[in-house]
């Protein structure tokens, strides 16, 4: 069986060279957006960035959630989970409601505001490359193995091992393992993650659960509501009828 893949990003190994940034631009045929990659930010032409926090560097990209909020809210199913684990987008289906951008807990999707035929833009974990057995562009380009690509169970194991073997070196948490129900991009770092601009206080359950709790009540609202309204229609009609007849009778007497 094809195993779902993911990226493990180790902040301690990242030297801030920007190879991943350049490779991403090249693979996705994106134009240059900033002379200094460290000052760039995610946009419709930039799917991954390297941010500097003192001596540390943190990469930002789509987290490829296990149960993605963006895919669950898309009314036409333009965003789906690929068998590789990547969260992919089909512009042909998209109607452009931008609910995915509103819903994403990691604030990742970007929009082509400048065009009259805009697409939602974000990292797709190089889904096509991965399907043909290649590495994602960014991982392929990383000179220090700060980004590892592999089967999810394997990279989780590696992350746990690194945390366990070097308790002084790492902040004891794997970001992305549980955040928003877990994702296919995992991050380990020497400092707490909010210091690196990662969203803190994210719910630990999948985001679609929040909606499902309300949505699953719909069938009972429809059936119960329909029955209630029909019953009320019949009852109040009957009540009025009886009242009318009684009135008639009193008048007759």
């Amino acid at each position: 069986m094809f195993k779902e893949k993911g990226i493990l990003f180790d902040v301690t190994l990242c030297i801030g060279c920007g190879s991943c940034y350049e490779a991403c631009k090249e693979v996705n045929k994106l134009p240059q957006t900033n002379n200094d990659f460290l000052k760039d930010h995610l946009s419709d032409n930039t799917f991954t960035v390297v941010e500097q926090y003192g001596e540390l560097y943190a990469r930002k990209l789509c987290m490829h959630c296990n149960d993605p909020a963006c895919a669950s809210v898309c009314l036409v199913g333009a965003i789906t989970k690929s068998p590789t684990g990547a969260v992919v987008y089909d512009a042909e289906k998209c109607i452009g409601c931008r609910y995915c951008m509103q819903a994403c807990p990691h604030k990742i999707p970007r929009y082509e505001w400048g065009t009259t035929h805009p697409r939602v833009r974000k990292c797709n974990l190089c889904d096509e490359r991965v399907k043909t057995g290649k590495l994602p562009g960014c991982v392929d380009a990383c000179p220090t193995e700060a980004a590892l690509f592999g089967d999810m169970d394997q990279i989780i194991e590696i992350a746990k091992q690194r945390l366990k073997e070097n308790p002084d070196k790492y902040y004891q948490h794997i970001y992305g393992l549980e955040e928003a129900g877990g994702s296919h991009v995992l991050v380990i770092s020497p400092v707490p993650f909010e210091q690196l601009g990662f969203g803190s206080n994210l719910p630990l359950e999948p985001m679609p659960e929040f909606t499902m709790r309300a949505m699953e009540k719909i069938p009972s609202v429809v059936v119960g509501g329909g029955a209630f309204l029909s019953a009320m229609y019949w009852l109040t009609k009957r009540k009025n009828q009886i009242a009318k007849e009684e009135k008639k009778q009193t008048n007759g007497n």
Partner: peptide, 26 residues
Amino acid sequence: VDLGRPENFWHPLVMWNIHSVMFEIT
């Protein structure tokens, strides 16, 4: 007017994602 791709406004009629609140609202 708000849709980024208004020419695709009819898509929800044939492309369904029943987990989406937006789908139900539409």
